[in-house]
Design a protein around this nucleic acid. Structure first.
Lengths: 339, 339
DNA sequence: TTGTAGGCGTTATCAA
DNA sequence: TTGATAACGCCTACAA
């Protein structure tokens, strides 16, 4: 690798002069600059980050730690969002996955420390609590799509309460009153929050939220039991008072509802309105009719997490905001207005 | 950050002694070792990678460059595979995305060079040719899910020819003879390769591959035109000689075929066998019946790419193997044996 | 406007 | 078995 010294020798100037030029210091003669720049080009000089950083400069590398267990495929958009935010600032991203293993996580904190990363984002692949297992990491840690049990760390989260509200509000506004709900498992954070949101929407509309119309689904993406939804939906449709709209805990559930509806001869959205959650485009854009749903703002979460990480460096250690990112309604073709 | 010097002072030994202990040099008195190790622990010493690397050690960081345009959600498994392979070797991964922009790519080569990464993997999100745009990167570059137009770089690719063969072989073996094919766009590499594979299977079975049964689909995942498949399939089913099996270019196409079949009252697999490609679990495991398909081995591709990168460091510059990873058949419930 | 000296944290060399 | 010294490439402080 070419060093400043080598360029300096070729150009017949001092190391410092070359350094100035590389770093755009204006205090340098234009002629010298142009002259040296040619050599810089010819030798294809690239500054050595390690050396720069050792000299005391702030690291240009951020760390991103993920727990890639039971991954939903679109949650990697968190990573994309983070990358995008970082590239704007000419920073780079060191990435690693714990696979949900605490020992691995501990190792990774060491690794990140060893690289003196400027900050780290811990990103969970679904919304949950996570106690960061680092005994002694001293830079900023931002939680993305997860939160500290004691709320003592900055975190960026999807606003699931608002998401549930948005789902319910949408179908209510379209005039639906007999509304079925098929949720994810009750033990995940998002389910509870969304239900609160739905209840709020029902209250506002002066409709009582009828638990009897709620069914519990299954969360596991890779879980064969998701097929259970088909039965659940079918049973709902057989009811003498069958719902005119179904609110689903995610798009996969909605997909099953489509199947169940088709098998009973119900036409969506004419006979039945369906609204999903997540906006898994693979599903939402491929279903016929395309699925109206509420999106999980993963990209935005990653993006904001990086911004927060950067700004956190100037905060004191009690800095622990909890930032909620809205889940937008994505209107497509699966809901109709009752007249 | 704690340095060797600080530990040395505390322990009352020389810097070099501490260094020896940190690096597991056996030439050190056991007593000294134990004694110093206590201080190492107490002060929570972590070696500074930048300093180590500057001293001339080999970098422990690899670079991964992706082109995240029009991403299929599961192709990120390439990244997972790469991470897994790297963690086994206690290496880390610097990651960045070009977004398909050549200027950005050029910048990234500089960045990677600047960090003196030990090697880089360029991973495409779908199988294609890619001319690496690096004027002067001198370490090993491995192409994952893509290949150099001149075949002058090592690359790891899915064996699409074998994948197509596997699809066709499967339905032929089940006794199907009237077989419809809905491909991806013809301008992508995979389509041509898979068709060759299908033709090979047909030849082996002594059946002629009838182009009249082939329809061209659309590749764009985010493309509304995928809905066109529904019409294509419906038209096929209306034919007086309707196919008993459909080979699909991907699982999304298969999903559309399911819809079309349902709307015509055809039961899968009784009236129609369907085989997909990609194994997008979100779809393949959620469809009813679950979809028989051929998987794209993304994880494996990422894993092998890293292994290749590591071994490539000892090769001369003409090292340019082209390694094909098989696409395995994932048998589920959507195909039946004709009796 | 340009250059010199020194030091960042680590490891290799050589000496004790 | 241990330690002093130099060097890696860069940048800051200071001087010319």
């Amino acid at each position: 690798m070419v060093t400043l010294r080598q360029v300096a020798e070729r150009a017949g100037v001092s190391i410092k002069t070359v350094s100035r030029i590389v770093n755009g210091d204006p205090a340098v003669n234009v002629k010298t600059r142009d002259f040296v720049q040619v050599h810089l080009q010819n030798l294809n000089y690239i500054p050595n980050q390690a050396a720069r950083q050792m000299r005391g400069a702030v690291s240009t590398v951020y760390g991103l730690m993920t727990d890639a267990v039971a991954t939903t495929p679109y949650s990697v958009d968190i990573v994309r969002g983070a990358q995008a935010a970082l590239i704007e600032k000419h920073q780079t991203l060191l990435i690693a996955s714990t696979d949900g293993d605490a020992a691995r996580e501990a190792e990774l904190w060491q690794t990140f420390r060893s690289h003196r990363v400027a900050g780290v984002i811990y990103a969970a692949m679904f919304h949950k609590a996570h106690e960061v297992g680092n005994p002694a990491y001293d830079q900023s840690i931002i939680l993305a799509n997860c939160f500290a049990p004691n709320n003592d760390r900055p975190s960026i989260l999807p606003d699931d309460e608002q998401g549930g509200y948005t789902q319910a509000k949408h179908v209510l506004k379209l005039g639906h009153r007999r509304i079925g709900v098929i949720t994810l498992s009750l033990d995940i954070v998002a389910t509870k929050l969304r239900r609160q949101g739905m209840q709020r929407a029902f209250n506002e509309a002066g409709v009582s939220y009828n638990l009897a119309n709620e069914r519990r689904g299954v969360v596991g993406l890779l879980d064969n039991q998701t097929l259970v939804i088909f039965e659940v939906a079918t049973e709902m449709f057989k009811s003498h008072n069958r719902p005119t709209a179904i609110i689903c805990g995610n798009d996969q559930i909605a997909m099953q509802v489509y199947s169940a509806a088709a098998s009973m001869g119900l036409i969506i959205p004419h006979d039945l309105s369906v609204i999903g959650f997540d906006d898994l485009k693979l599903i939402s854009e491929t279903l016929r009719p395309q699925l109206t749903t509420v999106a999980l703002p993963y990209y935005e979460i990653g993006h904001r997490a990086v911004e927060l990480s950067i700004s956190a460096r100037e905060q004191d250690e009690n800095f622990a905001p909890r930032i909620l990112i809205p889940c937008p309604l994505i209107e497509r073709k699966s809901c109709r207005k009752l007249s």
